[in-house]
């Protein structure tokens, strides 16, 4: 298994490896972290690796980039079990986990079509409710709850 991974996604010398991303949310993670916008760093990713826990998982490697907690925690919405490996000189020097933030600004859309945030140009704001391990968002404006199943990322 390990051998496969190495072949599919090249090892990086320095940077961050984000592992255990649910395969279906790979592009959401890329979008939330703005990896589709950066022009400098080398970004490689692979998806549909077999995973006991997730079924299919994705992995992203970003060269020469180290994320701040506040940024990386934003991906908790779509990849709550993601693990980060901080790589220096081909060695894992630190492992980090995503922590579910208590508040989310922007990023997600409120599922209520009658919410003011879906009708005027307003940055969405949610408090994060963690119910039995499943994350849902309570809109600061319309007070309605958007569950994981209806979660939409603003791209």
């Amino acid at each position: 298994m390990k051998e496969d991974k190495k072949l599919s996604v090249t090892a990086i010398q320095n940077g961050t490896v984000i592992d255990h991303i649910p395969a279906q949310n790979l592009f959401n993670v890329i979008s939330i972290l703005g990896l589709d916008q950066i022009t400098e760093n080398l970004v490689t990713f692979g998806t549909n690796f077999k995973s006991d826990r997730l079924g299919r998982k994705a992995i992203i490697k970003v060269s020469d980039k180290y994320f701040k907690d506040i940024d990386i925690n934003k991906i908790a919405l779509v990849a709550p079990n993601a693990k980060l490996n901080i790589i220096k000189d081909y060695e894992v020097v630190e492992k980090r986990q995503v922590i579910v933030p208590t508040e989310i600004n922007g990023i997600a859309r409120c599922m209520n079509p009658k919410c003011i945030t879906n009708n005027e140009n307003i940055v969405t704001r949610f408090s994060v409710l963690d119910r039995n391990g499943s994350i849902s968002l309570k809109c600061n404006y319309c007070e309605k709850i958007t569950d994981q199943q209806h979660l939409q990322i603003i791209r």
Partner: peptide
Amino acid sequence: RHPLEGSARY
């Protein structure tokens, strides 16, 4: 009074 939810908070 507004027909959209969350309008008053905003």
